[in-house]
């Protein structure tokens, strides 16, 4: 386990996502993000961690191309990134399989191929037989897996996730952690994962980047050198989580004016 004080990391492959000096504010408001520079290497699982007001979601919107930075540059050399939200945000007028197919359709995939590919993706998230179900017939965990299949249907190797498991119960979340790690390996995904759950970040990430709040700045980076499969209960995960939590708390205290 190494703690890197600076922002740079030594990577051999080209980055899948590059942020350079990114600042974002809305209108005349204060900076939400302040001079954030970050590289996500190809195939890396990077967790962005921070308290409220650190601009995590804003940062993902920028990478997803939903918004533009005020200054600085955001580059995703592989093209569009797929984005998953805290809510599954599946369309309730479509079946599970049609939700996945819509993502393919909007990319111009033909009808027959769409159907086959959607079935493949649903099989991948172990929902082979749930394709015909309506969204309201699925449990929370199943919905988030359909959302995962839909994100994969965008055929982007960069997956952005905005607290995707925050609304799930602990057991389901734990299982989906395993699922995500598995998918990331089998699909060779680059993942940029936003969370405020320290253990989740350490459980999942190759690297954890801690952001300050108001404005969001990169405070620290931690390389997580614990082999997968990890368990969230393991002493290694707990130990690093403690270190990160202490730093996070120190950062939060600064906002109370009593540091």
């Amino acid at each position: 386990m190494t703690v890197l004080e600076d922002q740079g990391t030594v990577t051999t492959t080209a980055p899948a996502v590059t942020l350079r000096g990114v600042t974002k504010r809305f209108g005349q408001g204060p900076n939400i993000l302040d001079d954030v520079s970050l590289d996500v290497a190809e195939g890396e699982f990077l967790c962005l961690l921070g308290a409220s007001g650190c601009g995590k979601s804003t940062l993902l919107s920028l990478v997803a191309g939903l918004d533009r930075p005020t200054t600085g540059t955001v580059e995703v050399p592989g093209g569009r990134a797929a984005l998953m939200f805290q809510e599954p945000a599946l369309f309730p007028w479509l079946t599970a399989s049609q939700n996945v197919e819509l993502a393919l359709r909007l990319r111009g995939v033909g009808k027959k191929e769409r159907r086959e590919r959607a079935q493949e993706l649903l099989t991948l998230v172990r929902l082979k037989d749930a394709g015909g179900k309506r969204v309201h017939e699925l449990s929370g965990g199943m919905r988030q897996r359909v959302a995962m299949a839909r994100a994969l249907a965008q055929d982007s190797h960069v997956l952005l996730m905005d607290e995707p498991f925050a609304a799930l119960d602990a057991i389901t979340r734990d299982v989906l952690h395993d699922e995500l790690v598995h998918l990331r390996q089998s699909q060779k995904l680059t993942v940029l994962f936003v969370t405020h759950n320290v253990r989740e970040a350490v459980r999942l990430g190759d690297r954890v980047v801690l952001l300050s709040s108001r404005p969001g700045r990169v405070v620290k980076e931690y390389e997580v050198k614990i082999g997968q499969p990890r368990r969230i209960e393991s002493p290694e995960v707990a130990q690093l989580s403690m270190t990160v939590t202490d730093e996070l708390r120190a950062e939060i205290r600064r906002h109370g004016g009593q540091s």
Partner: peptide, 29 residues
């Protein structure tokens, strides 16, 4: 129509008419 649906539509690449047809109108039904 929940704004989140429109955001999801944009992430999936739905713009203009495609967004109206596949997201906005079905959501408003």
């Amino acid at each position: 129509v929940p704004p989140l649906y429109l955001r999801v539509g944009r992430v999936l690449g739905a713009r203009g008419l495609a967004s109206a047809r596949h997201v906005l109108l079905p959501a408003a039904l």
